[in-house]
Amino acid sequence: MNSVPVIQPAAAACEACPAHNAANLLRLGVNVNDCDYVVALAGNPNTGKSTVFNALTGLRQHTGNWPGKTVTRAEGAYSYGQKRYKIVDLPGTYSLLSTTLDEEVARDFILFGQPDVTVVVVDATRLERNLNLVLQVLEITDRAVLGLNLMDEARRHKLQVDDRRLARDLGIPVVPMSARRGEGIPDLLRTVHEVATGATVCNPHRLQSEPAGLKRAVAQLVAQINAVYPGLPNARWVAMRLLDGDQRIIDAMQRGELGDLALRQNLEPAAQAALEPA
């Protein structure tokens, strides 16, 4: 552990000790009743979402080193700081702009399920590609935490990732972790708790590089959407999808279910069934 540059050796040793977690974390397995907060786990394929999920819930979702392993939503629960959390492990996606079934499961949950916190798990050794998804998630939700996973791999490849600068730039908390070794999990728990309870307020990065014409069009449409659905939290994202001609969002709007869908997904744990092909 002496060669570890990013996490201090002392902290790593503490985290590896079972007593460190035992006091605060109570793994609740599949018992998702009466939860105070809902946490979504998103991220590119094969970044360790299921490993984080298992570490938090004590469940044993099958993990494997290959992309596309989780295709459905898996749910579990834990309790931390006197609050009960439901945690939803979403299928890995590169983007929220396409329409394959597994990507839709992820997108619809973040968009309509309105989780209290969305944890985006990223591969520290492939940060640039992973950030493409993070930026899209940050267009949808304000309350996000970046799980900078596979820091052990980054170290092995002699990469240095400045998590503080990343946190400042993205406007959300960034937690460096090596989930397979259990490093960073206590930090993640605390950070999720702070964001869920509102102790930490995020100020997420919004796209800056889009051309002026596009910016104007989005702004105009957002104004219209806000007039019809006041309080819709992701009007900007909905506007972009409408401009892009996303049929699913257009349908949702035509049927007037854009507002309802949020409600429904929260009430119905098996809402995923509705997303399966007819």
Binding site: E128, L131, K158, Q208
Partner: peptide, 13 residues
């Protein structure tokens, strides 16, 4: 945006 953010945060060997 992703490329710019990555450039700022990552130092390669």
């Amino acid at each position: 945006d992703a490329a710019r953010l990555t450039d700022r945060a990552v130092t390669r060997p």
